[in-house]
């Protein structure tokens, strides 16, 4: 095991000033994610999970610490991240609680857009988008606009969009929060499959303990610190 991890966050801290006091949203967190690994981040509300994802996703610089992607130092304290948009587009896929699809585009257009803005020719982008959607069981929905899709379907379109440019790292912030248990598990299962087949490193913030058996590793945050880390899937005891 000599290959650098896909994502490596070192001693990352993020402080927000609110009035006179300073909120330590993140207080020295380290996290490594390897190719093909599916990692869960757990923790109560306000524990810094989203902040960690923003920093790992190069959307915010840490106040302290650094972020490496495949061994390259890409973000550290005080970094101006606007210039990393191209890097983000090619290397990182995001999924959020809300699908945030563009309402005037169909499912396949939403996915194809992510490729077109990366200069993939329109026709190739469309074909690949349809293939991705079909792979996620949405082939018959490719031509529908978001308002015609259920919440679970919208979220799967968002996942297809995150996959569009074949990123090595996928970050998902509570992607199942708006879904019922069964559909939530379907989404996590999808991530499991993506990690296995594509070898992407995937970090998922989740509250749902029922799907934890699908993860390779679980990290628990409280007050901006890692308070627990468990390796290996949490097996649900066989009946």
């Amino acid at each position: 095991m000599t290959a650098a991890p896909i994502l490596s966050v070192r001693e990352a801290a993020r402080h927000y000033r609110s009035g006179d006091s300073i909120v330590k949203a993140l207080d020295g967190v380290s996290l490594d994610v390897n190719a093909g690994e599916l990692v869960a981040i757990l923790g109560p509300s306000g524990s810094g999970k989203s902040t960690l994802l923003l920093i790992a996703g190069l959307l915010e610089p840490p106040t302290e610490g650094e972020v490496r992607i495949r061994g390259t130092l890409v973000s550290k304290a005080g970094e101006e991240l606007g210039r990393l948009r191209d890097f983000r587009r090619r290397n990182i896929g995001f999924v959020f609680q809300k699908a945030n699809l563009i309402p005037f585009l169909t499912a396949s257009e939403n996915v194809a857009l992510a490729m077109e803005i990366d200069d993939v020719p329109a026709r190739d982008a469309r074909r690949h988008a349809e293939r991705l959607l079909a792979g996620l069981g949405l082939g018959h929905r490719a031509g529908n606009r978001p308002t015609k899709l259920s919440g679970g379907e919208q979220q799967r379109v968002a996942i297809a969009r995150a996959l569009a440019n074949d990123p090595t790292l996928i970050l998902a912030d509570e992607p199942t929060a708006a879904l019922d248990g069964a559909r939530g598990r379907q989404v996590i299962a999808l991530f499991r499959q993506i990690a296995d087949t594509r070898g992407a490193g995937i970090v998922v913030v989740t509250h749902d303990p029922r799907s934890l058996d699908l993860f390779d590793r679980t990290i628990e945050l409280t007050d901006g610190r890692v308070i627990g880390e468990r390796s290996g899937p949490v097996r649900i005891p066989a009946r």
């Binding site: 959307l59 587009r89 563009i102 992510a114 803005i117």
Partner: peptide, 16 residues
């Protein structure tokens, strides 16, 4: 604006 922020998030250039 929300959609524009989303476009930026998925890495769209300013030109788009």
């Amino acid at each position: 604006l929300h959609q524009i922020a989303m476009l930026k998030l998925i890495g769209a250039r300013n030109g788009v």
